[in-house]
């Protein structure tokens, strides 16, 4: 299984990947949704961590698309926005598991 991280902030993406690799996961980082699409779609055993604010195709759109795959991966949204703002973003769809920034190891490990 692979953990895919779609995060435009290089510091956040790199540090998150480093920590997850330390824990023992295989990790790929993408700066935006477009470059994520260039790769093979994730399988059901994979996890995709998506920052909701991305340049271009938004994190919300990416999560919607991933959630509608026949065998969707596990989805974790990360965001600095408020819970209410995020619920608004997802409208009728069920918002995914959400981690708010700043992230901590405990909260991450609990989800993986």
């Amino acid at each position: 299984m692979t953990i895919h991280i779609v995060e435009d902030d290089p510091g956040v993406g790199d540090s998150l990947a480093m920590l997850l690799r330390e824990i023992g996961h295989q990790v790929e980082v993408y700066p935006d949704a477009e470059s994520f699409f260039e790769h093979t779609p994730p399988g059901p055993q994979d996890t995709v961590i998506v920052d909701l604010v991305l340049p271009g195709v938004s994190g919300v759109q990416l999560i919607r698309w991933l959630a509608r795959l026949a065998t969707p991966p596990r989805l974790i949204a990360i965001s600095g926005q408020s819970r209410r703002a995020i619920d608004d973003l997802f409208g009728n769809d069920l918002p995914p598991v959400l981690l708010r920034k700043p992230l901590t190891e405990e909260s991450l490990v609990a989800l993986l």
Binding site: V12, S15, L16, L19, E22, K101, E105
Partner: peptide
């Protein structure tokens, strides 16, 4: 400011936690 600081702070915490593991 909260938003701007949040990003580097997130990175700092994750780096430190990775360092601790290592």
């Amino acid at each position: 400011i909260a938003h701007e600081l949040n990003q580097p702070l997130t990175a700092i915490m994750l780096y430190l936690q990775a360092a601790k593991r290592k």
